[in-house]
Design a protein around this nucleic acid. Sequence first.
DNA 1: CGATAAACGAGACGGTACGTCTGGTCTTGTG
DNA 2: CACAAGACCAGACGTACCGTCTCGTTTATCG
Lengths: 200, 200, 200, 200
Amino acid sequence: MVARSEQSRQAILKATMDLLDERNPEALSVRKLSIEKIAQEAGVSKTTIYRWWSSKAEVVLDTILDNHLARTPVRTDLPALDALREHLASLATVYAGWEGRLMAQLIGECQSDPEAMRIFHERFFEPRSRTAIAIVERAVEEGTLGSDIDVETVTETLYAPLYFRLLLHIGEIDRAFTDALIDSALLGIAPGSAPAARDH
Amino acid sequence: MVARSEQSRQAILKATMDLLDERNPEALSVRKLSIEKIAQEAGVSKTTIYRWWSSKAEVVLDTILDNHLARTPVRTDLPALDALREHLASLATVYAGWEGRLMAQLIGECQSDPEAMRIFHERFFEPRSRTAIAIVERAVEEGTLGSDIDVETVTETLYAPLYFRLLLHIGEIDRAFTDALIDSALLGIAPGSAPAARDH
Amino acid sequence: MVARSEQSRQAILKATMDLLDERNPEALSVRKLSIEKIAQEAGVSKTTIYRWWSSKAEVVLDTILDNHLARTPVRTDLPALDALREHLASLATVYAGWEGRLMAQLIGECQSDPEAMRIFHERFFEPRSRTAIAIVERAVEEGTLGSDIDVETVTETLYAPLYFRLLLHIGEIDRAFTDALIDSALLGIAPGSAPAARDH
Amino acid sequence: MVARSEQSRQAILKATMDLLDERNPEALSVRKLSIEKIAQEAGVSKTTIYRWWSSKAEVVLDTILDNHLARTPVRTDLPALDALREHLASLATVYAGWEGRLMAQLIGECQSDPEAMRIFHERFFEPRSRTAIAIVERAVEEGTLGSDIDVETVTETLYAPLYFRLLLHIGEIDRAFTDALIDSALLGIAPGSAPAARDH
DNA sequence: CGATAAACGAGACGGTACGTCTGGTCTTGTG
DNA sequence: CACAAGACCAGACGTACCGTCTCGTTTATCG
């Protein structure tokens, strides 16, 4: 009879983001964030949070994902290979900062919370994956990638190193890195494959 | 003056492994594992655990890593490219089972525990990384990989998809997958980098 | 908004009393009593105890005092000197048993817990002291005690030996003792203050 | 074969006193004092303390009592009633300060440690009690106290209020108080007993 | 327009685990 | 062989959150 309070929902998401935002001097890790603190910060009762989300991880998912997807769009106004390059670069830019650390922590939390992992897939991985595969397919159609490649494996191979660095805390995450990934993949690593591919 | 009790140390590591081992019907996730339970299972006091480890994550690191490294050795009796292929395949085999889930949870925990991440690097990532880079270098020397490749990037590119699948819970982790990774990398993805370019 | 659970309160006080009651074969001293055990025995969480009491001593105070005051009332239906005699005798009776040992332990605990001592004064000593002084005043009014005595000092002098025996674990605590106290005080100890001086 | 180290014994007693002495800014209550801290302060191992004493209370007893008895001697160069008055006054002086608080805490500890209480009796209460009774007996012999008094009860009555104030944290502990005790006891409290006794 | 039912804040509750502290015992050299 | 050093088991401490559960108290339709 009484509709869900949009005001509470917003307050909860905002409180969560504020508590996680590293620009806030008292920011918390996802681990140290608690439903109790969110409720307090949002001026909302715990009951209200539990009514609409079933765990901390899900609140964090809701808080982070829409924002993240909006910030790393795929461009449709460019040739596919360039769009791919731009997309990887934009991901690198975002992941290099505090949102990257957040995403890493979120994926970390999902490792021991199957329901959160399910939502992560549904809300993040699957749409993103479809989008990425679509660009690679378009690049094949445009003739800038070989027609005999296994699109899904190649897509995975291009994005994986980004998440590898993000989750294993190695090296830089920047455009130089993502560009190198694409270039390296284009050439292949077999001896002699380079020169041939290179001149055209 | 009084030496550390090796007996206690072993009991703690064994208890931790038993509590995490999914073949045990009452197994726990890394998240639900607690210092308290380890102490109880090991017949040891909490003090003794805290004396030698500073967090649950570090106990788990100690428990898992040595065992894992021992189970996924790099073969030196094979040509480098074959050794690489075998190593990726052995990783896939291990990561496909409960030890993979454990490793994923462990990396997950490290996301919000910088000290644990530091130890993970020191104990796992860096030795492993050096070993992997060494095989790739050997393959270059043996002439089975191109001499102009960026060894470090290529190595990362070969291993990353394995961890991507492990941590994002996508697809199968098996030899078919790791073999495909190597084959795909060898060929490259540019149009025309196909068989013709490869042979001679 | 949610009222305190009277049920929990009662369960905690009862559990405390049960654990301290020497008729219980596994009874504990106040020292060995712990919040943890009370919580367990009462089927209540530690949080609930800490929510309403700030230390073990305060729980014990709450448990003992009301009961004790109820068991050693001052009679108003007797002449004041007789009421005083009866009150001392009833204290002796109670203090001779396990409740006496409890009271002694409680006072013992308060020696190193100023807040508990403050509560002991507020809840026990001050009301009791006022009551006792009032009887002595009434006895003066009734003419059974001298009109020139210092009421407060005399009251203290009459009750002190009871606590002396209780706390220093000396001698018997019984009616013979308390009657002797009153008789001795009545007579005085100066030579010649004997019967001759008293009558007329 | 190796004799008890008198040096260790002294170091332990001194450390205990230092840790309890309120003139030391970091002084501890008897409760917060621990064998561990004494060992540390004395530069001695816990084992050594446990070898010679069986609890914290006993160490404290050893530390305090000799000193205390030496500081509150009974004078033999005065008429007994004056010696009694002086003794009570000297006790009041000592008990008014930090040694009083210590003694109170010590007696408090003994409430839940029968062995400590036994030692307290043996080392403190019994000798002290015999001494006190002896003065009162001497006063009777000298004719300054009535010959018909019950010496033990009277002695107890005179000293009890001091300990009452000490242990219940009431009122002042000073010479005015102890003098009032003796005067009040001398006169008695029965109506009319005062005038008769007073003039002679 | 007043009834009513959901959503809400507040927060008490039984729990689990935390990381710290002490107590008292046991072990291993050293002098 | 007394001792120091200190590791060890045991278990209580007080705190933080968990997720559940009343409680009134809004508040927004719907009869």
